[in-house]
């Protein structure tokens, strides 16, 4: 569904990604794990077109997207929940969700989807008229994911959904991610520092070290790999 072919991206003048190649198949959950500053977020921003790659190709369903602007990429069905959640602080919860559906014109369907979101997250329904900036970290993460769902993505890019959340809340979020994958049949590209949880959730995993992919395998194989255990799982 998505393929990166030797992508090189720069953050200012610093090369953040070196020859990144990876594949995401339709319907699966893949994860990209790595330490702080390894280039995980840059990878997602390159896919979304916010940091366009300087060389290499990104293909979505076989078509090149690496020269498209971010709004065109969203229109194709690739949505990102960025690191730090990026809730619009002054807009209410309902307005934040509505913003997720910015490119859609099917108002009736949008209303139905909104109701679906509210049944999925009753917490958001209770707070629909509060400014997004007032929510707790976990609630903001739910809102950020819901906002991305409002765009009806085919491929959902999630950047550090567990960041700054209590273990219990993190569990809830990951259950929801699984649910989105199975119920909505949404392909998921998950970037995480919490390698243990990410590998338990995903089908396959890639390991990113200082801008280079050093390993990729089935998630269960990575979980039992000794090097991975030492470097990322603290075993």
């Amino acid at each position: 569904m998505l393929e990166l072919r030797s992508v090189n991206s720069y953050y200012g003048n610093i090369q953040a990604l070196h020859d990144i190649s990876l594949k995401v198949e339709e319907g699966e959950i893949i994860t990209l794990i790595g330490a702080n500053g390894a280039g995980k977020s840059t990878t997602l921003m390159s896919i979304s077109g916010v940091i366009p790659p300087r060389s290499g190709e990104i293909l979505f369903k076989g078509k090149p997207i690496h020269q498209m602007s971010p709004d065109k990429i969203v229109a194709l069905g690739i949505c990102q929940v960025p690191e730090g959640r990026h809730i619009f602080p002054v807009l209410t919860v309902a307005e934040n969700l509505d913003m997720g559906a910015f490119l859609r014109r099917d108002n009736r369907q949008i209303k139905q989807d909104l109701e679906y979101i509210y049944t999925l997250f009753p917490l958001l329904a209770n707070r629909r008229n509060q400014p997004g900036g007032n929510l707790s970290g976990g609630e903001q993460q739910m809102l950020a994911i819901s906002r991305a769902l409002m765009a009806k993505p085919q491929l959902l890019l999630l950047d550090e959904p567990s960041m700054g959340l209590a273990p219990l809340v993190t569990r809830q979020i990951f259950d929801i991610i699984k649910k989105i994958n199975t119920e909505q049949n949404t392909t998921i590209f998950l970037v995480e520092q919490n390698a243990n949880l990410a590998l338990k959730t995903a089908d396959r995993g890639y390991v990113l070290e200082t801008g280079r992919i050093t390993m990729h395998d089935k998630a269960e194989n990575l979980l039992s790999n000794e090097d991975i255990q030492k470097a990322y799982l603290g075993i």
Binding site: S48, G49, V50, S69, P70, D71, V74, A75, C79, Q80, P82, H86, F88, P89, V90, L91, M99, G100, F102, L103, R147, A151
Partner: peptide, 22 residues
């Protein structure tokens, strides 16, 4: 107007919900 408010609050996120920021 909606797009303008979103861009003013968070330009990166505005791009990520599909707003043509230019």
């Amino acid at each position: 107007g909606k797009a303008m408010r979103a861009t003013a609050q968070d330009r990166t996120m505005a791009m990520l919900v599909g707003i043509n920021v230019n």
